[in-house]
């Protein structure tokens, strides 16, 4: 019995390491790209050290499991009146573990009528997709969601 359970445990460990290794290698290689930037540096550059609030006003829609990391649809909606004195100034989209975390910075105006952005991003590994919203009042709101990627999109 002991020998059997020991062997089973060994098998599990082997399987686990086999699953983890490719993604680990990718994560280690990631920051060497031509436009490499970490999420901390990207946030610092935009907010200038101001507090970022995780807000229920920001709705980020992304699949929980993405079969193919090369095409992951992401939709961001923000509850905002979009009037001259209160509107969403910018929507920033980040993929937190890509070599270049920045995906898109979208500058909106009241002419948009409603704050929404839908696009498709590439994800190298399983990671969180994050949206940072800048309002005309100078507040920073955010939302994020984890996406599991079966096949990476950076190969």
């Amino acid at each position: 019995m002991q020998r059997r359970s020991f062997l089973r445990g060994l098998g599990l460990v082997a399987a686990a390491s086999a699953v983890i290794t490719p993604s680990m290698v990718m994560a280690a290689e990631a920051p060497t790209g031509p436009n490499a930037l970490t999420i901390e540096a990207a946030l610092q550059a935009i907010t200038g050290g101001k507090a970022v609030v995780v807000s229920p006003l920001v709705h980020l829609k992304a699949p929980e499991i993405a079969e193919n990391g090369a095409v992951v649809p992401v939709t961001i909606e923000v509850d905002s009146p979009m009037t001259e004195d209160n509107y969403v100034k910018a929507i920033h989209v980040f993929a937190t573990k890509n070599s270049n975390v920045r995906c898109a910075d979208v500058m909106l105006t009241p002419a948009n009528g409603a704050a929404m952005l839908a696009t498709r991003v590439k994800l190298g590994t399983s990671q969180a997709v994050m949206a940072l919203i800048e309002t005309s009042k100078g507040e920073f709101l955010s939302a994020s969601q984890n996406v599991k990627v079966t096949i990476g999109g950076c190969g």
């Binding site: 975390v101 979208v106 948009n112 009528g113 929404m116 952005l117 696009t119 991003v121 590439k122």
Partner: peptide, 28 residues
């Protein structure tokens, strides 16, 4: 719209191949 800019985007390589950009627009 009629040569007045209403949305500008800066994008990077993290967007997918053949990208799609969807935004809202209030028709004036």
């Amino acid at each position: 719209f009629n040569d007045t800019s209403f949305t500008t985007m800066k994008t990077w390589e993290s967007l997918s191949t053949n990208p799609v950009f969807t935004i809202n627009f209030k028709v004036p």
